[in-house]
């Protein structure tokens, strides 16, 4: 059974590129365009990983992760945050929200694949 990954980012092209890379590697991918959209798509279905941008309209990544971690089905789901900031502040907020893994933008699709497979192999 393929592993499910959700990618949350307001950039459609980024979602596309990541989606292509992940699907190519054998993962199933759910896309969401911001935190709010993502939260709506958390329907209890098992997710093995969430990849989320921080800075997004409607609901930012940190608030989204915080909200997702309140749901029993996603309490322990690993999260990779995508960030342009190496700032500790943001990380601390993210960590507190439950995001422990960070990938700095910009990244190559292969880098993302590597990061993902450290947490979940296909």
């Amino acid at each position: 059974m393929a592993k499910n990954i959700m990618i949350v980012d307001d950039s459609a092209s980024l979602r596309q590129v990541v989606g292509i890379a992940l699907r190519g590697a054998g993962y199933d991918v759910v896309e969401a365009c911001d935190g709010k959209d993502a939260l709506n798509k958390l329907d209890g279905r098992k997710l093995h990983l969430i990849i989320s941008d921080v800075n997004m309209p409607n609901m930012d990544g940190i608030s989204f992760v915080k909200a997702a971690k309140q749901l029993p089905a996603y309490k322990f789901t690993p999260v990779i945050m995508l960030t342009t900031e190496a700032g500790n502040d943001m990380k601390q907020q993210g960590q507190a929200a439950g995001a422990k893994a960070w990938v700095v933008k910009p990244f190559q699709p292969a880098q993302m694949l590597t990061a993902v497979s450290k947490l979940v192999l296909p």
Partner: peptide
């Protein structure tokens, strides 16, 4: 580490790659 969503076994599996 588990509560943080990280499974130690996942990292060991990754070594195998």
């Amino acid at each position: 580490v588990l509560r943080n969503g990280m499974d130690p076994l996942a990292f060991i599996r990754y070594l195998g790659t």
